[in-house]
Every structure is written in structure tokens, then in C-alpha cells.
């Protein structure tokens, strides 16, 4: 464990807590893409299957349980509990255009042709594009609540910090995982436009208003 990965995991944890608090306090899921949240639930489910077969640390296990649990709670909030406030007209990204190519790529490009490894690879590839429905929804509605912007900033920062973690691990531990690094770069690059808007607008008290 290093500081980059720890801060990254905390940033990821913060993003999920911000999202749940926004939903619970405002009793609304307005502006939140249910499709992205479904993709995140798939990402965690396919990535943490080794939860039951291997033990790395208390931290590792508890974070995996938390991420899986909260991802399903979030999907439940959107499609059941706060369904009336779900803006399905603006959440129209065709996720099958993400899942099918990512599934095919995981099948072809992986470290080892075993079920667990292919599912892990699928999860890594899927996570890199899972935010697209949310970013698409923000561009369609033309704006995002500031709390949603904070959620996205924390979520985007987590993988950017993981990139620093991989640089650190490469130099100090000789650890290198090309699949995770490439997907992490794609994932972080997708946030760049949002990061720019967040830093130039939200931090100055303005709301994000993308050209619709």
C-alpha cells in the first residue's frame, strides 16, 4: 500500500458516500445516471469474485464488501426507492455498445485465459467507460448539481491517483500491470473535460453548464 493508492481508495469511498448522501438527503436521484450505476455494480461484482476465495487483508475485504454493497443500494435507490425522481428521458446512453465490445476485448486481451482473470479484465475495461452514460446525461441536461459535480470529481480523482500509484509501484516494487494502466489512462482521460469545467467553474461557486 502507498499514499497514492490509499488516497485514491479514500477518494473513491468519498465519491460513493457523497452520492448516497445526495440521494438520501434530497430524497432524489435527479441528474444521476442509473445506467452508469448499473455498470459500476457489474464492475464490482465481476472484479471482487475472489472475495470468497482469497483473503488479502481486512482493509481489502472490507472495502470490497462496501463497494459491492453500496453499488447495489445505489441502483436500488434509482430504480426502486426514488424511482419517481429518476430522469430516464435523459439517461439514454446505449450501454450495450459498451458491454459487448468490452466483453469481446476481455475475452481476447487478458493476462490469463481463466474465468476469474477474464472477469477481472472485463471489470477493468468496463470501469474505464462506465462513467460515459453519466457524462452523456450531464451533457444532455446541460448542467449538473454541484453535489453531483463533487461526486464526479472524487470519482475521477480516484483512478488518476491510481495512475500515480502504478508509477510508484513500478519504480519501488517493480509491479506493472499493462491492462490496468491502459484502462486507467482511458478512464482518467474521459474525465479531463469535466475536471477542466469543475476547476474553472464549480470551485468558483458556479454551476457546471455544458453546451447542451
Amino acid at each position: 500500500m502507498n499514499i497514492f493508492r490509499l488516497v485514491g481508495d479514500m477518494s473513491h469511498l468519498l465519491a460513493i458516500i457523497i452520492l448516497l448522501m445526495k440521494m438520501w438527503k434530497s430524497r432524489s436521484v435527479a441528474g444521476i445516471s442509473g445506467k452508469s450505476q448499473i455498470l459500476f455494480a457489474i464492475v464490482f461484482t465481476t472484479r471482487y469474485l475472489d472475495l470468497f476465495t482469497s483473503f488479502v487483508s481486512i482493509y481489502n475485504t472490507s472495502m470490497k464488501v462496501f463497494f459491492i454493497g453500496t453499488s447495489y443500494v445505489t441502483v436500488y435507490f434509482i430504480y426502486q426507492h426514488f424511482k419517481p425522481t429518476y430522469d430516464s428521458n435523459h439517461d439514454t446512453f446505449r450501454v450495450e455498445f459498451l458491454i459487448v465490445p468490452v466483453g469481446g476485448l476481455a475475452f481476447l486481451v487478458n493476462h490469463e485465459f481463466s474465468l476469474l482473470e477474464i472477469l477481472w479484465t472485463f471489470s477493468i475495461y468496463l470501469e474505464s467507460v462506465a462513467i460515459l452514460p453519466q457524462l452523456f446525461m450531464v451533457s444532455k441536461t446541460g448542467e449538473a448539481e454541484s453535489i453531483t459535480s463533487h461526486y464526479l470529481f472524487a470519482l475521477g480523482s480516484y483512478r488518476a491517483l491510481y495512475l500515480l500509484n502504478w508509477i510508484y509501484r513500478y519504480y519501488f516494487e517493480g509491479f506493472f500491470d499493462l491492462i490496468a494502466v491502459v484502462a486507467g489512462c482511458v478512464q482518467t482521460i474521459l474525465y479531463c473535460d469535466f475536471f477542466y469545467l469543475y476547476i474553472t467553474k464549480v470551485l468558483k461557486g458556479k454551476k457546471i453548464s455544458l453546451p447542451a
Binding site: 493508492r5 472495502m63 477481472w120
Partner: peptide, 10 residues
């Protein structure tokens, strides 16, 4: 590159 299971990263 070493990338064995279990993955120690989240």
C-alpha cells in the same frame, strides 16, 4: 509484469 490473482488492488 506480475499480475497474479488475488489482486491486492481494489
Amino acid at each position: 509484469c506480475n499480475h497474479s490473482l488475488p489482486k491486492d488492488e481494489l
